[in-house]
Computed example of a mutant assay.
Amino acid sequence: MTQPVFIYATFPDTASARKTGRMLVENRLAACVNILDGMVSVYRWDGEIAEDDEVVMIVKTRSDRVAAVTSAITDEHPYDEPAVVALPIVGGSDSFCRWIVEESNAQG
């Protein structure tokens, strides 16, 4: 059975997140995309500690669209190794969860 899921991804800037988010919604890969600016990431890369400003994207989609959404984000993403992970939704508003599943349906 198809379930709603959230996909968490990070981007270097709002413009690239908006471009990708719009493409996901236009292609019915997502019901909605939230873009949250102002995150600071501290991480290890190539043996060094780095700190960068980033943008968070939360994609609301269906469990059967995770692979397609992940591929679409990765194809559009400016990073060599973008952070893209799917998170299950374990509860919440039934009507909102139905809306996510309906709006991210490929048949529209």
Rank of each mutant, 00 (worst) to 15 (best):
V90K: 07
I89W: 05
I73R: 00
V69D: 06
P78A: 11
W45L: 03
E54Y: 13
R62S: 14
A31Y: 01
V40R: 13
A50D: 08
M57Q: 00
V42C: 05
R98W: 07
G91V: 11
N34V: 05
E81V: 14
V85M: 12
D94S: 14
R65I: 13
D64V: 07
D53Q: 14
Y43P: 03
T74M: 00
P88F: 01
A86W: 05
A68C: 05
V55W: 13
W99A: 01
S95L: 08
I35F: 14
L29T: 13
E76S: 14
E51Q: 15
A31D: 02
K60E: 13
A30I: 08
G38W: 05
S71G: 15
A67F: 04
I89F: 04
W99E: 06
R44N: 05
L29D: 09
C32K: 04
V42G: 06
V55S: 02
V55Y: 13
V69P: 05
V59R: 02
C32E: 11
K60W: 05
V33A: 05
K60D: 10
I58T: 15
G38A: 13
D75W: 03
E54C: 08
S41R: 04
S71H: 12
R28Q: 13
D46Y: 06
P82W: 09
K60H: 04
H77G: 07
G92K: 11
R65W: 08
R65H: 14
D46P: 00
G38E: 09
S41C: 08
I73F: 03
D80K: 13
A86E: 13
V42M: 12
G47K: 09
I89Q: 13
M39A: 14
S71Q: 12
I35H: 12
V90R: 12
A83I: 04
G91R: 07
A31Q: 11
D94Y: 11
D37C: 04
R62A: 15
S63L: 02
